[in-house]
């Protein structure tokens, strides 16, 4: 009797990810509600920063005001929690003054697209090398659940008790139209895909915008009759989106009304800080 053939099993050695290297553990617990997706996005962000091989001393995380904008307090980088809507302006100052830093902006949909809408479009237009992560939950969570610039028509919020009548913004379309050179969408549901997308955004030279759909069960969920946080994630993030690569292969009715995930737009265009140094500073020399 011959010995049974041994199929060589390649064992995957998974090294546990040391989150504490990038967190400020003594600043936890975070302020986010049970069921909120912000923690999942934070995890994806930290793993992407790690995988990008960035030096913590050279990473700066900047935010505005809102639930998602509390992220910088929990992470061990150069961190700046600014004013409502102005994260991109502060970040532009830091990046432009010190281009060797990797500046990541964490912002919410209200922060980035309403009060900070002007800064959003002009940041994209300049193509300054910032990675902009928009936590899109269609809600002003910090103030208790008002409708935001991404709230779908008809939705309930504390300021739209009769249903919202304002059409929502598509952050990706806006970023693309304004000139961002990397535009992508992810969700808190698709965690591995999100990590990959954020990594690609970090590695992109220029303004990269990742719109991250990330439900707010506490306000949006309860007011709009979602049964639970997981139900909300399934309906909005899983069933409400489709990866852009799959979308091409699906019949139109399967894509209709769904938000596209993945990298939606990627082009090369001169980056602002490099242009300033190579064109303006060079020309000014000796004059």
């Amino acid at each position: 009797m011959s010995a049974p053939a041994v199929t060589e099993k390649k064992e995957k050695i998974s090294v546990p990810f040391d989150y504490n290297k990038y967190l400020r553990p003594n600043k936890l617990p975070h302020i986010w509600c049970p069921g909120c997706g912000h923690g999942i996005v934070l995890k994806a962000m930290l793993r992407a920063i790690h995988n990008a091989g960035l030096d913590q001393d050279k990473v700066c995380v900047v935010s505005g005001i809102g639930c998602s904008s509390r992220t910088p307090g929990y992470v061990d980088f150069n961190t700046l929690h600014t004013l409502h809507g102005r994260a991109l302006s502060f970040a532009t100052g830091i990046k432009f003054a010190k281009p060797d830093m990797k500046v990541i902006v964490v912002t919410g949909d209200g922060d980035a697209l309403a009060i900070g809408g002007n800064h959003f479009i002009h940041t994209c237009r300049r193509n300054i090398d910032l990675t902009v992560l928009v936590f899109t939950n269609a809600t002003y969570g910090m103030t208790g659940g008002q409708y935001s610039p991404t709230t779908p028509i008809g939705s309930q919020a504390t300021t739209s008790r009769y249903g919202s009548i304002e059409p929502p913004f598509d952050a990706c379309e806006m970023a693309k139209a304004a000139g961002a050179t990397f535009v992508a969408r992810g969700t808190a549901y698709h965690t591995l895909e999100l990590e990959k997308t954020i990594l690609e955004a970090i590695n992109h030279k220029g303004t990269s915008v990742v719109d991250i759909i990330d439900a707010c069960p506490t306000y949006f969920g309860r007011m709009n009759k979602y049964k639970s946080a997981t139900h909300m994630m399934e309906v909005i993030e899983k069933d409400g989106t489709v990866n852009v690569k799959q979308a091409d292969k699906l019949p139109p009715e399967k894509v209709q009304g769904k938000a596209l995930r993945g990298v939606l737009h990627k082009v090369e265009r001169p980056e602002y800080c490099e242009q300033y140094e190579s064109l303006i500073m060079e020309k000014a020399k000796g004059k």
Partner: peptide
């Protein structure tokens, strides 16, 4: 910058750098 607010905010950013 795109407006006065951004001008002030970026000035603070430059100083922090």
């Amino acid at each position: 910058m795109e407006d006065e607010i951004a001008g002030m905010a970026a000035t603070i950013g430059g100083s922090l750098a």
